[in-house]
Design a protein around this nucleic acid. Structure first.
Lengths: 225, 225
DNA sequence: TGGAATTTTGCGGGGTACGAATATTTGCGT
DNA sequence: ACGCAAATATTCGTACCCCGCAAAATTCCA
């Protein structure tokens, strides 16, 4: 195998020194890529810098990631994977929407400034907003969402006893959920008078579960949430 | 302005010679990129080849597109734009879901082999399937879907008289729709006993509009759609 | 402990993206 | 019709990126 290859590289698989080091290097590289990008902007970060930051040779960087963008997005993929994992772990008794909501809240909304007492660090969050807007990264972010969708599809299929190969249902749910989470996250980050993540999420999922009913507007006013 | 820049470059804007030539060059480049990629695979296409195919200098290619991937995806973006446009053009009387369904069918399902009498050309369609799977392109494809989502968001907001800045509703609808269309397209392309596009689409939208109800499975079998 | 499996690394080559300067084409006023 | 100004295309040069290859270093396990 060639280091970062797609083999059974899953986060918690092997326990040998080898596997652990590989995972550590991978995380270190991804983390370095993120930090440098937030601080200087993607264009001013060379792969060489990232490698140096993680303490490996430049060539090794490309053994793990095919490019800067992929390295930055690796974190999001990991988070998505954890959400799917959490969904599988929810008790069978929970209705699907409740389980999904809880899974997202459990694994996604952790460590967010409004919810935790972290130091928001204006400089950092501003940089993050810039990073999320980088055109060269958005493709990879969407791609990450695609991976998450795939994992959620499997989890939903399992949970509802549906055959994802035959029915569209699990994939439709997964697509709607990832889409909604994306929307919610953007709103959450951009909200100027900050809004609790959970509130936005429940609102969004509520609309989805209700079939996205068209808000009948009376005369001139839009209805308020 | 520098050729392919983001200015008011919209498909049907200016009518001068300048604007037209620009649009023609752009389409020629995108089309060339697609054709060569389908025939040889993305890795065996140099930007130089694409430029040559379109009859411009290599440097000019990069004045229009930031890379091969973007050039290939340009077509999809255009299609998405047309769907949003069609949605705006649907009569106000149509309920939202119906209007969306019609808009998609009108502008998306055109020229599909099963529906039209085109020559399927096995060689070509096989190449297309390969292209759609190219990892280096998927990011850009997702990005294209993102652009479409944005356009749909505006169209839905207009149509339902909702303020997309305040309410999540239009964006949620747009996200769910683009997600569903993606799922449907994949199924349609992969279906071995071919299935009509319209059938899949109505099924998917039906489930969305119904709130994606969890199919209560009885004992051992999944329910059929 | 010793060899097998795996990973890291340096090197080299083919390409890509883009800034700057220059040439060319188009739009438009007179 | 002419010629100037603006927009666009081209040429050239540079920095960087991605990856194949094969040698060196590390880890595994019997």
């Amino acid at each position: 195998m060639n280091a970062g290859d797609a083999g059974e590289d899953r986060a918690g698989s092997g326990s040998g020194l080898r596997e652990r080091k590989k995972r550590e290097t991978r995380t270190a590289l991804s983390w370095a890529a993120i930090r440098l990008t937030v601080e200087r902007g993607l264009a001013n970060v060379r792969t060489e810098d990232i490698a140096a930051e993680a303490g490996v040779s430049p060539r090794t960087f490309n053994n793990y990631f095919s490019g800067k963008a992929e390295a930055v997005a690796a974190r999001q993929i990991e988070r998505g994977r954890q959400i799917a994992e959490e969904l599988r772990a929810r008790p069978e008794s929970e209705p699907l929407w409740e389980a999904v909501t809880n899974a997202v809240l459990e694994r996604f909304a952790l460590g967010l400034p409004t919810d935790a007492g972290k130091a928001p660090d204006e400089h950092w969050t501003a940089g993050v907003r810039v990073m999320l807007g980088e055109p060269a990264l958005q493709g990879e972010f969407f791609k990450a969402a695609g991976v998450t969708k795939a994992e959620l599809t499997r989890a939903v299929a399992e949970r509802t006893g549906t055959d994802a190969g035959r029915e569209m249902y699990p994939e439709l749910v997964a697509a709607a959920v990832t889409g909604a989470v994306t929307v919610v996250s953007e709103r959450y980050v951009a909200a100027d008078p900050p809004v609790p993540f959970e509130e936005l999420l429940r609102d969004a999922f509520g609309q989805l579960a209700a079939g996205l009913p068209e808000p009948r507007r009376k005369k001139g006013r839009g209805s308020s949430a």
